[in-house]
Amino acid sequence: MPTRRPLPRGRGEPFRAETDPPRRPALFLAPQPYRQRRLIDAARAVPLFGAFLVLAVPLLIPRGVEGTTTSLLVFLLLVWIGMVIAAALIARFLRGAMPEARDGDR
């Protein structure tokens, strides 16, 4: 049974050892890196979606109508909280994909 070398990098990076000659990256990913890619997609999509809600909805609300301030305030706060929760969930998983601090040489 051949022993498998541990991957040289974080879980999410496309696996290629830095010393190895460049290989053609595999076309399909294993489930875990695949999940990580999709998390990155989510990290990219959430702000776009949030920006749409935050920018577009207030522009579409009629001006000068009584009581719109409170409802819009509640709406924006809900969007805000939603974004924070989504970002927190995504960041929790993505943290592992980021490199360790290299501060030892300082």
Binding site: I40, A43, R44, V46, P47, L48, G50, A51, V54, P58, T69, L72, L73, L76, W80, M83, V84, A86, A87, A91, L94, M98
Partner: peptide, 24 residues
């Protein structure tokens, strides 16, 4: 001017939520 002050916080919020795009 009502809710206009929120913009000052919403801009940075979007930039930080979108950290993977630019801040990283």
């Amino acid at each position: 001017s009502g809710l206009e002050y929120l913009t000052i916080y919403l801009g940075p919020t979007l930039v930080f939520i979108g950290w993977w795009w630019l801040l990283r």
